[in-house]
Design a protein around this nucleic acid. Sequence first.
DNA 1: CCTATATACTTTGAACTGTAACTTTTTTAA
DNA 2: TTAAAAAAGTTACAGTTCAAAGTATATAGG
Lengths: 162, 162
Amino acid sequence: MPNSPQHLHDVLVHLRRIIRATDLQSKRVVKACGLTIPQIMVLRSIEALGDVTVRKISDSVSLSQATVTTILNRLEDRQYVERVRAQKDKRIVNARLTESGLEILKTTPPLLHEKFIDEFESLEGWEQTQVLSSLQRIAMMMDAENLDAAPLLDINSPDALV
Amino acid sequence: MPNSPQHLHDVLVHLRRIIRATDLQSKRVVKACGLTIPQIMVLRSIEALGDVTVRKISDSVSLSQATVTTILNRLEDRQYVERVRAQKDKRIVNARLTESGLEILKTTPPLLHEKFIDEFESLEGWEQTQVLSSLQRIAMMMDAENLDAAPLLDINSPDALV
DNA sequence: CCTATATACTTTGAACTGTAACTTTTTTAA
DNA sequence: TTAAAAAAGTTACAGTTCAAAGTATATAGG
């Protein structure tokens, strides 16, 4: 018989640790290259998708439009990105990488900690799959927006974002 | 043969979705009871541990001391908590729940979305265990502080924090 | 005793994050 | 045609989060 209340509590504890570890990794990455993880994800997303709207970036990196706007502001201040208003529909803003943006992207480290990467890669294939599918399951269960069961394995994001 | 780069990328994507879902849930909880998830976790931690130092709270909720301080500031402003300086060692600050603090705690909803709780509880016992152990594994692999393999199942946190 | 170090906590500064309200532009419908 | 509704972004605001620097107190060594 599963002990759900205890398990749920443990889920919460582990999630908090994971969120914290992610924050800490972002600080490490900042020290290494001057950009935070969300900034790098936005840059890579623009690189992968070409000139792209704020909405598409926000879908691609799982952040709200408002958050992407503030991140774009900072990236634009530093001239890694420029905004180009679309001609046919003037509501639309396309983000575009600058030369410096392309340059800095080359200096960015992996977004997951090396320890994590090493340990994950040292897992057996079936273990990797199990971890991944659990993670996918949790992501789906937590996604209160899509109340219908979303199709599995619908990952069609730009690659090499790690 | 495992396709690690793709898997690592997928791990990152799912983690981001999970972090976002957690943020969104916190906003929902605020609407329901006026407190954010971190605030509730701190309050429950104080409730569970009794008069307790900032350091212990920060360990218990997996947040830095500085973060707990700012959360305590807000909770103290609203008089849910009071700080009591220890007599024998005046560096130490103990946090204590007030009457209102105890009251408000009774009104707080579960910290995981109801959809998540329902779906998690509907899983088979072995599935719950698998999800939980994957989560624990990820949390451990991401924890760059503890480079040695931490012992499994060392969960001794106060209960009913969900 | 007195200085150096360590501990407990707070402050500061910068970034992330979302909702709600707002502006501008486009589309729809009367 | 023109008013209403929708869509794309931005702004305002409040909270979270951490590292690093700062403050106050305690302990250890000379």
